[in-house]
């Protein structure tokens, strides 16, 4: 890719990642959440992969790391879901309404889900580019 795309991609990449994680972390307060946020983060990685080539993108995050992370995170999601459905009834979460810590259960699910979406989508993009 030419120099314009590379320069812009280099400049904009941190902000894409930041926006993605902002959306993930505010999923319980504003629209968005794990899937849109994770998709935005993955699109940041996809931008790097398109602009600089797949090798440079794999210096940021390797394919094997993504695979293992996805497996682990998926297990955490199922365990969190079990937690949500059984233990939650006995724990009253205290938090200010509309505050950042108002719903720790939803926040934790959003974060874990967001990471999973990020891993999965980045993995798909990487594998498709490699073909």
């Amino acid at each position: 890719m030419d120099v314009i795309i590379r320069t812009i991609a280099k400049g904009i990449f941190p902000f894409i990642i930041l926006l993605g994680f902002f959306i993930i972390f505010h999923g319980h307060l504003t629209p968005g959440g794990s899937f849109p946020g994770g998709a935005i983060v993955a699109s940041g990685f996809a931008l790097i992969a398109v602009a600089f080539g797949i090798k440079r993108a794999e210096m940021l995050v390797r394919e094997k790391t993504l695979r293992i992370m996805e497996g682990i995170v998926a297990m955490i999601i199922v365990i969190l879901l079990l937690y949500e459905s059984f233990i939650r009834e006995y724990i009253v979460s205290e938090g200010e309404m509309f505050g950042f810590w108002s719903a720790p259960e939803i926040l934790s699910l959003n974060v874990v889900g967001g990471i999973m979406v990020m891993c999965a989508l980045t993995l798909i993009v990487f594998l498709m580019i490699k073909e």
Partner: peptide, 18 residues
């Protein structure tokens, strides 16, 4: 019921790692 399905899903993701 939920444990049956969680065992299956957790183990399928565990397979990816282990």
């Amino acid at each position: 019921l939920e444990y049956i399905i969680s065992i299956l899903i957790v183990s399928s993701f565990l397979m990816l790692v282990l």
